[in-house]
């Protein structure tokens, strides 16, 4: 029983990380149907930025918001300089642009901040909490707490604010949105800034567990993306469910099947789900976009 509980807690910890990263994909996807492959790099920038600001002597409480601001600025610059000039291009072109941006950001960090890996201390200590013989990392609770706040915040943003509704309207029909007076260009800018900030937050909260490094964005971005796809792209709740499911499957597969094949088990299940439910567990059905 303690064994099962440990696998479950480990799975939830890892799953919450995937979910928090996966959430970042939903905002830009909702605004433009673009999958932003630089999302992982926002996550990395958040973690690395905080590490270096703290190394410069700032306390966590100052370094964290400062790092988030820096990453938001990077997100805005990325949109202004790379995405906006190509706004009339197809979605595929825009996705390719974000891949290019991710390589650029990764390279720039590698050259300026170095190739070493770093760790942030746990926000409330590194001693684990023992539950029925299983250990839970304290930082996991921060991540799960942040997940709840972010999901609720996003729901409120998309359902109850003018800006959020404008983002959704733009995603459904750009021309119609423009006709009713929505400034489409600002929408995309806002969505890049928001998801950069969200990515940075994820990077900072997860750094005590995952450690951070210039190329951590590749892995976190990929797993977060898998979580978002599994749960249904664009749905906040879906990203969370997808992340937790993915994390728990991985942990259970490692524990009960074979640690060598746990990723394979996870991917087979994702493929299976997508085969029967192409828009993910909680995604909007594709039919509405005619």
């Amino acid at each position: 029983m303690a064994e099962f509980l440990q696998f479950l807690l480990s799975g939830i910890t890892v799953g919450a990380i995937y979910a928090l990263v996966g959430l970042g994909f939903s905002i830009i996807y909702n605004a433009s149907h673009v999958i932003n492959f630089a999302q992982g790099e926002f996550v990395m920038l958040g973690g690395m930025g905080t590490v270096f600001l703290m190394a410069a002597g700032l306390p966590l409480i100052v370094a964290m918001p400062l790092a988030i601001c820096v990453v938001v600025a990077v997100g805005l610059i990325l949109e202004k300089l790379a995405v906006e000039p190509a706004r009339d291009a197809t979605v595929v072109t825009l996705i390719i642009i974000t891949i290019g941006a991710s390589i650029f950001i990764r390279g720039a960090v590698e050259v300026t901040l170095g190739k070493d890996f770093h760790r942030l201390p746990g926000f409330s200590g590194d001693e684990p909490i023992l539950i029925g013989g299983a250990a839970l990392q304290r930082q996991s609770l921060w991540i799960i707490g942040a997940l709840i706040v972010v999901v609720a915040g996003l729901k409120w943003f998309f359902d109850h604010t003018r800006l959020g509704k404008a983002v959704l309207a733009t995603s459904h029909n750009r021309i119609a949105a423009q006709l009713v007076g929505i400034e489409v260009r600002t929408i995309l800018l806002v969505s890049f800034g928001l998801s950069a900030g969200l990515g940075a937050l994820a990077g900072i909260l997860t750094a005590p567990i995952t450690l951070t490094k210039y190329d951590i964005g590749i892995m976190l971005g990929l797993k977060g993306f898998a979580a978002a796809i599994l749960g249904g792209l664009g749905s906040g709740f879906g990203a969370v469910a997808g992340g937790i499911v993915l994390g728990v499957i991985e942990a259970m597969a490692a524990g009960y099947v074979s640690s060598a094949y746990k990723d394979a088990v996870a991917f087979v299940i994702i493929l299976g789900v997508l085969f029967f439910m192409p828009s993910g567990l909680f995604g909007a059905k594709g039919a509405e976009r005619v």
Binding site: Q6, F7, S10, T13, I218, A251, A254, S259, A260
Partner: peptide, 20 residues
């Protein structure tokens, strides 16, 4: 003999198996 992927962020399941 337990394995993890180079990108894994938590090895508790593998270690729990070893512990048991």
């Amino acid at each position: 003999d337990e394995t993890y992927a180079p990108t894994d962020t938590d090895m508790s399941p593998q270690l729990t198996k070893i512990k048991n």
